[in-house]
Design a protein around this nucleic acid. Structure first.
Length: 518
RNA sequence: GUUCCCAUCGUCUAGAGGCCCAGGACAUUGCCCUUUCACGGCAAUGACGGGGGUUCGAAUCCCCCUGGGAACGCCA
């Protein structure tokens, strides 16, 4: 390894809540750079026009700042290699695509999504690795461009060098197999025949680059020396290496870090785990405990210490001590750590500040008071009436979580639908929440009267509360989401034939649609 | 299905041929401290997936199997 200061980056795409996985990868990159006096870049990969939002971007930056992971260059701070938002670099990508086109390293393609689907299915049926079949690769480019001039949307694809044994090689096969070697800093060299590599789309028909193109161009232009990213990228690394080669550039070093996992070992996901940094923050986890915990995923200190600060981590981090088995994101241990930080790293005074900032801000109290003031007569009643505004979880009898007229399974499906809606609801102001609840009822053919009582139970654990839209708005999205999930879990454990009033029991009935009657 | 990656207690992991009949931490259980609950202390339970090699000697190296994961998009 060279001893020049490294340049690394974290490149989140702003398409949702700030994710623990992002923080984990960011932390390792940060430590890698800082330790050797290098540069840590934050680049926003917002080339998905449909899903990217500025709100998400802001939330991601904010969450990383909360953890104390500070970048040297980024969309907010600027820097010599900017702009740091890919949507603002479009001319750069077009220019580079043109270079590839000019040198015949890439080609235009007008294949439709339908055709591509068909090809993919056939390949799957033939038990092949699916990928573009190279249809347009062998067509006359002038013809393809004429189609586009006539209005057919087109994309640019990479002309992956192909060996003679490759069914996708056609006319331009070279005589020998073409093999790409990936030298991952954490693994043995991996050799991949380009037969396994797709003629990847580089420029989408909306004129935006794909991840692959933008990523390679930016990493090169920004002088990135080391790419530390999630293991999920390992199989597209050959594409990237090929792209660097097509441009005549030297590629950076790669190190693919093991993925955070759910209890069942699958890649960590919001379905099975809290993954939003906002959730942890709102639930009262301390940023330094969070960093400590993330730092012990896949990494250990040589001296075996388990309690360490961000600075400690920066000082002692080394790729040599990364273990490759995917670490399960174990909330129990995080909780223990947080407890230790709370009682060992905070003074009583700081704890008071923490609680105030966490649970009792003037702003929050004001909102709570607004929705409950008609409902209590002296201050002591208040906590008895509305404790659920301040607790993490609530305890509702599982039987109350069955929706009127629905079986246990149907109820669970309806809660799932709600969770999905909440997951996607980035706007959590009153009107949005109100609309969300209405659409939940309407989509599922329920009246608010049927739906709201169980909803009240699942979210508040009480049968008497202020109006729900107001309450949920104040309570906040993370808490609402968590409680519905928790309710779902307790429904899962409910014995199947409980006193169900609606459907006569016997068989689980043959898959009726979840949206019955009118 | 195809390609690739990975494989030590339930979980995070130590271990880079003898120091290991495998060490630490979380969780679990028990005991102690204590008016209670926590905290804290002590202790216990608990793992090298299987089979072949290599070697005087393997958790450590090699091969096969098995298991797990990821990727296969005009998403990143």
């Amino acid at each position: 390894m060279s001893d020049k200061p490294p340049v690394v980056r974290i490149a989140p795409s702003p398409t949702g809540d700030p994710h623990v996985g992002t923080a984990y990868i960011a932390l390792f990159n940060y430590a890698f750079a800082k330790q050797r006096g290098g540069t840590f870049i934050l680049r926003i990969e917002d080339t998905d026009q449909v899903r990217s939002t500025r709100q998400s971007e802001d939330a991601i930056l904010d969450a990383l700042r909360w953890l104390g992971i500070q970048w040297d260059q980024g969309p907010d701070t600027g820097g010599p290699a900017g702009p740091y938002r890919q949507s603002e670099r479009l001319p750069i990508y077009r220019e580079h695509v043109q270079t590839l086109l000019d040198t015949d390293k890439a080609y235009w393609c007008t294949c439709t999504a339908e055709r591509l689907d068909g090809v993919r299915k056939e390949q799957m049926a033939r038990k092949e690795n699916s990928g573009y079949d190279g249809h347009c690769r062998f067509r006359d480019q002038a013809t393809v461009k004429a189609e586009m001039a006539a209005g057919t949307p087109g994309v640019v694809r990479l002309r992956v060098p192909r060996g003679s044994g490759d069914p996708k090689a056609g006319a331009d096969a070279s005589s020998d197999a073409v093999v790409v070697v990936i030298n991952d800093l954490l693994r043995k060299p991996v050799e991949i025949n380009t037969r396994e590599v797709d003629d990847q789309v580089l420029l989408k028909s909306d004129g935006f680059p794909t991840y692959h193109l933008a990523n390679v161009v930016d990493d090169h232009l920004m002088g990135v020396t080391h790419v530390l990213r999630g293991e999920e990228w390992i199989s597209s690394t050959p594409k990237h290496v090929l792209l660097y080669q097509s441009f005549g550039w030297q590629h950076p070093e790669f190190a693919h870090l093991p993925l955070l996992r759910n209890q069942d070992k699958s890649k960590v996901s919001k379905r099975k785990n809290p993954v939003s940094l906002n959730w942890f923050r709102e639930a009262g986890y301390l940023p330094d405990a969070m960093v400590n915990f993330l730092g012990m995923m896949a990494f250990t200190f040589e001296d075996g210490r388990e309690i360490f600060s961000l600075d400690d981590f920066v000082q002692h981090f080394t790729l040599d001590r990364i273990s490759l088995g995917g670490p399960v994101f174990d909330l129990k241990k995080l909780l223990w750590l947080n407890g230790r930080y709370l009682r060992e790293k905070r003074s009583d005074h700081e704890l008071v500040q923490h609680l105030k900032a966490q649970l009792f801000t003037d702003d929050y109290l004001l909102q709570v008071v607004k929705v409950c003031k008609e409902r209590f007569e002296k201050s002591e009643d208040f906590l008895a009436y509305a404790p659920w505004f301040f607790t993490g979880s609530v305890d509702a009898p599982a039987t109350e979580l069955l929706i009127k007229g629905k079986t246990r399974k149907e109820s669970m499906a309806l809660w799932e639908v709600l969770v999905d809606k909440v997951d996607n609801a980035f706007d959590w102001r009153f009107d949005a929440v109100d609309a969300l609840l209405k659409s939940w009822c309407e989509d599922s053919g329920m009246t608010p009267k049927e739906a709201f009582m169980p909803l009240r139970w699942i979210v508040t654990g009480k049968k008497a509360t202020p109006p729900l839209p107001e309450s949920l708005t104040v309570l906040g999205r993370e808490r609402v989401r968590t409680r519905i999930r928790a309710g779902l879990e307790s429904l899962k454990k409910l014995p199947d034939p409980p006193a169900e009033t609606a459907t006569p029991p016997s068989k689980p009935e043959p898959k009726t649609s979840a949206t019955p009657q009118t």
